[in-house]
Structures are given as C-alpha cells and as structure tokens.
Design a protein around this nucleic acid. Structure first.
Length: 285
DNA sequence: ATCCAGGAGCTTT
DNA sequence: AAAGCTCATGGA
C-alpha cells in the first residue's frame, strides 16, 4: 500500500474500489460521524479526521507508525475488483455492488466490535451509535480530541445501573458479563485465529451473543470474510429479492451457505447497504 | 397508542 | 427442534 506522511497524518494513494463514506455509513461501525468534508472518529486508539479526495484517503491524526494498522483497518490491501468479479453471475449482488461501490469490510478491534454488536440486538443504528458514544465518553481513555473505546476491565468494573444510564437497557448485563469473561481469559485474539465455524461457536458462549452477533464480531472484528450475519434485512433480501421461500432460520442459513462463497461477508455488506436504501425492493417481512 | 429496531435467551409446545 | 414471549429504550 502506497502511503505518505506529512506531519499531520497519513495519506494513502492510488485507491480504487474504495469509498470512505460507503465504508463508514454502512452499519458496520458506530464510531464515525460526518465532519466538515469528511468524517471524524476514533479508531485504533487515535482520534482521526478522515477524508477522501479521489483516490487519496487522508487520515489526519494518525502517526506514520500506525499507517499499516490503518491500512488493515480499512482493508486497503485486498483486491476488491477481483472479489466483485467473482460475483458477476449474481444479478442482485451486482446491483448491490453498483449501488455500494467502494464499500469495504472494516477490520475493527475485536472487543469493541463484540460489545457494539451486543448492543445492536433489537436496536436501531442511531441509538446504537449514541450508546457506544456515551460509553466511550464516560468510560473510555481520553485521547487528543476524543475517547477510546472502554477496555474490558473498565466495562467489567461497571454496575448494571451505570451501563443502563448509558442507554444500554436490558443489554447491560450482557455487556458486563461478556467483559468479565474476556477479562477472565476468554481471548478474542485467540478466537480470531481459529477456524471460522469454531470461532463463531465459541463466541456464542458469551452472554448476549447469538449466531447473528457472533457473525458480526467475526466479520467486522476478526477478519472472517466468509461470515454472513443473517439479520432482518438479509431475510428481507433473501425473501423479497432472491424470491426464496424458506420456513425458518435453518432454511435461510442453508440458502446463504449454498449461494455465497468465500467472501459471503462482503456480499452481505453490499446487500445490507443496498436493502436499507431500497426498502420498496425488499420483502415487507 | 402501537410498532419497530443489524436478537438473544428462556419457556412452552 | 420449533415456535412463543419478554427484555429497555427512543423514534416514527
């Protein structure tokens, strides 16, 4: 990856198949907000002002020592053109790709991703973002211009009332329970090195983590690109766009496993983004 | 007021 | 195994 450092931050050059706004506004991260002509957010322990001009991504606030880490965060080293080509035989997916051109699956810190998607259960994106932001402001390490995501130790030390006061609602017990298990030796890094099926199975041992949340943590936080989070939107797509008539989740899962391949998670991200902006095109339930 | 939101977990068939 | 019920909260 070709990058430079100018004293204020890092800039990546020659990016194709990359759109910053598609990456940050597609429901996979809850930590970036529109700011001036770009986005402001906290990632990998840095408060960052990110903006894109053409094929250049500028990350103000990122030292050169963190350049490669951010290349991984934005998945800049992967050949998305080749992945998109592998989807050409799927007309629905091709439509999603056209609509969400430049979208990449981020690789975020595992614990932050896990907790964020525990919060996502039966919730909406705006409120998820607000809860995550409040958690960071109150309990995250202060950075130059923002707050980091709280550590497992910090979250494990909080009472249920303190977590509920951040808006977490009934998920407060899940958050502290999962944080405690991570503090107590449940290694997310180790899990991320396991085979996918094994990793997602292990993740569901955490409170508040079912298959869907496990798949989100696996996809957005652990680099398992074959993971396909099966949520309400994907059921609508599979039903309304692919005209699949399944009975229960087992049927939907079987459809996913036989339809999308090695990069199912990337396909899912295109479809999710497309579906959320084309409600009329997807199934009503 | 009622329903829904990137579901999970527990109870009942 | 599969369907049903409940969970806290805010916006539509």
């Amino acid at each position: 990856m070709d990058w430079t450092f100018d004293g204020n931050g890092v800039a990546f050059h020659g990016l194709t198949h990359f759109s910053l706004s598609q990456c940050l506004c597609s429901g996979q991260t809850f930590r970036w907000k529109p700011y001036k002509d770009g986005f402001f957010g906290v990632a990998l322990g840095y408060a960052v002002y990110a903006r894109q001009t053409g094929q250049t991504l500028t990350l103000e606030g990122v030292p050169q020592s963190a350049a490669e880490a951010f290349a991984r965060y934005f998945d800049l080293n992967r050949d998305y053109a080749a992945i998109q080509t592998s989807f050409v035989n799927d007309p629905f997916l091709s439509e999603g790709i056209r609509y969400a051109q430049g979208l990449r699956v981020l690789r975020q810190p595992p614990f932050e991703t896990l907790v964020s998607f525990i919060i996502s259960a039966n919730n909406n994106i705006k409120r998820i973002s607000r809860i995550v932001e409040t958690l960071c402001e109150r309990y995250g390490e202060p950075l130059a211009g923002g707050f980091d995501f709280p550590t497992p130790e910090k979250l494990a030390s909080l009472s249920a009332d303190e977590l509920k006061a951040c808006g977490a609602g009934y998920r407060a017990d899940y958050i502290s329970g999962a944080a405690r298990m991570v503090c107590d030796g449940f290694s997310l890094e180790e899990t991320s090195r396991m085979p996918y099926e094994q990793a997602r199975e292990k993740l569901t041992a955490l409170p508040g983590v079912g298959l869907k949340v496990a798949d989100c943590a696996a996809l957005y936080g652990m680099g398992f690109l074959q993971s396909f989070p099966l949520d309400v939107w994907m059921r609508r797509v599979i039903c309304g766009v692919y005209h699949y008539r399944g009975r229960g989740d087992n049927d939907f899962r079987r459809f996913v496993d036989t339809t999308f391949g090695e990069y199912a998670g990337i396909a899912q991200q295109y479809l999710f983004h497309y579906a959320r902006h084309h409600k009329e095109a997807v199934c009503a339930r």
